[in-house]
């Protein structure tokens, strides 16, 4: 059995706040990534995703726990770790005083590439990401989408084994999102590049991830493949209903129905209903709404998506059983 590319064991990060109290940003998390897998790390804003990435990428010192990349502890050998990783940060950290071409070439040179090899690869990547036309333009003149594409090109410039994509498609239009994923998947398939992704676009992990971790308040609430995570929600199908106002009698009536397992009130107008059965569920639910003095604005039946799983897991944190990714 081969060693995992990334092993995270009992990782913890505690920050001291200005008032002297402590904030546990990452609370004793463990997981591992095999070579060549795509792993999605999902969580609400402020959940501790970037803190985790910063620790794995040697930018932040953990309070406790161990991180190993290719079997070597990153605390004792951070240089080896950095050689193997590429990072697309959430923020724009491109060199604004350099051109697009220079940004890539300098990055390649930092990673030991010869000038000739770096220039050749830079030209290839600029062409792939549709940036050849702006090759000699300073990055400070780039739009958000262009800068994002260049950041991704720079992160893969030195052909990392482990690529961190921290919300990489934020600010990209759908066409370039597809280009990015084409690239990432090609790297993943051809060079066995392992991908660690955080994103708020749930369709991306749903389409591409081998494993997904749902992360909240510094803890991994659920971890597994998407079919495994689907088992965490009460039903495979969900009825979504929008009414003018959710009332107590409506909720009471729905709760009394034997074919309904659970009801989740998302806000004052929206309900998610988890049925026991998939048979003619809409036909059974609709009369309940018709009997109530509420205006039904919309109703639809769908399979539990990653979005549903995410909402369910983050809203029922204490009920979730954390699966181990083994």
């Amino acid at each position: 059995m081969t060693k995992p590319l990334l092993e995270v064991q009992n990782l913890r990060k505690v920050f001291k706040k200005a008032d002297g109290s402590q904030h546990v940003a990452v609370d004793d998390i463990s997981f591992h990534l095999e070579t060549g897998e795509i792993f999605s790390f999902l969580g609400p804003n402020g959940a501790g995703k970037s803190t985790t990435i910063n620790m794995i990428t040697t930018q932040l010192t953990p309070t406790s726990g161990t991180i190993k990349i290719a079997g070597r502890d990153i605390r004792t050998d951070p240089i080896n770790a950095r050689r193997k990783i590429g990072i697309v940060a959430q923020h724009n950290n491109l060199d604004r005083g350099l051109t697009a071409f220079e940004n890539l070439v300098y990055h390649g040179r930092y990673f030991g590439m010869t000038t000739q090899a770096a220039e050749q690869r830079a030209n290839e990547l600029l062409a792939d990401f549709g940036l050849s036309e702006w090759r000699q333009d300073y990055v400070k003149s780039f739009s958000g989408g262009m800068a994002q594409r260049l950041k991704i090109a720079r992160a893969i410039m030195h052909r990392p084994q482990l690529l961190f994509l921290d919300e990489p498609t934020t600010g990209l239009d759908p066409a370039y999102r597809e280009i990015l994923w084409d690239h990432v998947l090609r790297l993943n398939r051809q060079q066995q590049t392992t991908v660690f992704l955080t994103t708020h676009y749930m369709e991306e992990p749903e389409r591409f991830s081998d494993h997904v971790a749902i992360y909240q308040q510094g803890k991994i609430r659920a971890l597994g493949t998407i079919p495994e995570l689907r088992q965490l929600v009460p039903a495979a199908s969900i009825v979504y209903a929008t009414v003018d106002a959710v009332t107590a009698p409506l909720l009471q009536e729905l709760n009394q129905q034997p074919f309904i397992k659970e009801i989740l009130q998302k806000d004052e107008k929206n309900l998610a209903i988890f049925p026991n059965t998939n048979d003619q569920i809409l036909q059974q639910v609709l009369p309940i709404f018709e009997k109530q003095p509420v205006k039904l604005e919309n109703i639809r039946l769908s399979f539990a998506s990653l979005d549903d799983i995410f909402v369910h897991v983050t809203e029922h944190p204490t009920e979730m059983e954390v699966k181990t990714h083994a």
Binding site: T57, T58, Q59, I79, N80, R82, R83, I85, I87, A89, H91, N93, L94, D95, R96, G97, Y106, H107, Y110, F111, G112, R154
Partner: peptide
């Protein structure tokens, strides 16, 4: 501000 230094700090050197 710019955090441009992050790229250099990620280079595989001390």
């Amino acid at each position: 501000n710019s955090r441009e230094i992050e790229d250099r700090l990620q280079a595989p050197v001390p």
